[in-house]
Simulated scan of single mutants.
Amino acid sequence: MGDFLDVYSIIFLVLAVVVLLKLRSVLGQRTGNERPPVDRYSERRREDNSAANGNNDAPEINDNVVSLPSRNEEDEERRREAEDRRLEKVAPAGSALNEALRAIISSDRSFEPRNFVNGAKAAYEMIVTAFAAGDRKSLKNLLSREVYDGFVAAITDRESRKETVSSTFIGIDKAEIVEASLKDSIAQVTVRFRSKLISATRNEDGAIIEGDPNQVVDVTDIWTFSRDVTQRDPNWKLVATETAD
């Protein structure tokens, strides 16, 4: 029985030695001269620190690597190009008006020249109609304090003479931005309106003393609108009026 166990023990020992030799041939041996494993993250941190400290020994960067623009950069570039195209429809590139409008846009991203002109046209019709009707309430929301006081004084003077105005707004032939500025936070934009009106003023007896109720008149007005771009209120108010010669 002892001899039987010794034979099997010897067989298992031989098999173990064979397996060990096989593993050693496959995995190799450590000689003490092996290179340590590379920690690429630590290496990257050392390179970044060296570059930040101005170390000239930092690894060279491959000049052939080209950095591609990020998605945000591409979106911003497209936005600027679209903005340039819109501005050039209102004011030629390089003109003083173009630069002034660009300054307003940089301070007020909601400002868009063509939309502003459309809003100015609507305000022009409302103001002209309200003035003829003596509608002080509507005027107050559209005019600066100084202009409002002037309009109200004219209405009051007209009423004191018991005069009335009949007015029909036909439409606006053309409205264009002719001047703009940004001083501190105050933006101002001047618009030239060419419109058609029918207007007649009558005295207390109903006699026409000015205008013609049957004649369409061409009118050219130059109005300036203003807004503080730092305020949340998006509305522009009329701050100056001028009638073209």
Rank of each mutant, 00 (worst) to 15 (best):
D6P: 01
V7R: 11
Y8Q: 14
S9E: 12
V18F: 07
V18G: 09
L20M: 14
L21G: 09
R24D: 09
V26P: 01
L27Q: 10
G28R: 03
R30L: 14
G32E: 11
G32Q: 05
G32F: 12
E34R: 00
P36A: 02
P36N: 01
V38C: 01
Y41E: 03
R45I: 15
E47S: 08
E47A: 15
D48H: 05
N49L: 11
A52K: 03
G54W: 07
N55T: 05
N55K: 00
E60H: 11
E60K: 13
I61M: 08
S67V: 15
P69S: 07
R71V: 15
N72S: 13
N72K: 08
E76N: 12
R79F: 03
E83W: 00
E83M: 04
R85N: 12
R85D: 13
R85I: 13
R85V: 14
E88G: 05
S95C: 05
A96G: 00
N98Q: 03
E99T: 06
E99M: 00
E99K: 01
L101H: 04
R102W: 04
I104A: 02
I105L: 06
S107R: 05
S107I: 02
D108M: 13
S110E: 11
S110Y: 04
S110K: 11
F111I: 15
N115S: 15
N115E: 15
F116N: 12
V117L: 08
A120F: 10
K121M: 12
A122W: 02
A122T: 15
A123F: 03
M126F: 00
M126E: 14
I127Y: 07
I127H: 02
A130G: 03
A130F: 07
F131Q: 06
F131T: 04
A132R: 03
G134R: 05
D135A: 07
R136T: 14
R136G: 04
S138N: 07
N141F: 06
L142V: 10
S144T: 06
S144E: 06
R145C: 01
E146W: 02
Y148V: 03
V152I: 14
V152D: 09
V152S: 03
A154L: 10
I155N: 10
I155D: 08
D157N: 13
D157T: 10
S160T: 12
S160H: 09
R161N: 07
K162V: 00
V165R: 06
T168Q: 12
I170Q: 13
K174A: 06
K174R: 13
A175E: 12
A175T: 11
A175G: 06
A175V: 10
I177G: 01
I177F: 11
S181K: 11
L182G: 09
S185P: 02
F193M: 03
R194T: 09
S195D: 14
L197W: 12
I198D: 11
A200K: 05
N203W: 07
N203L: 10
E210H: 02
D212E: 08
D212M: 06
P213M: 02
N214M: 07
V219D: 10
I222D: 04
I222Y: 00
T224R: 04
S226W: 05
D228Y: 10
D228M: 07
V229Y: 12
V229S: 14
V229F: 08
Q231E: 14
R232E: 15
P234R: 13
K237C: 08
A240N: 15
T243I: 05
T243C: 01
T243V: 09
A244G: 02
D245G: 10
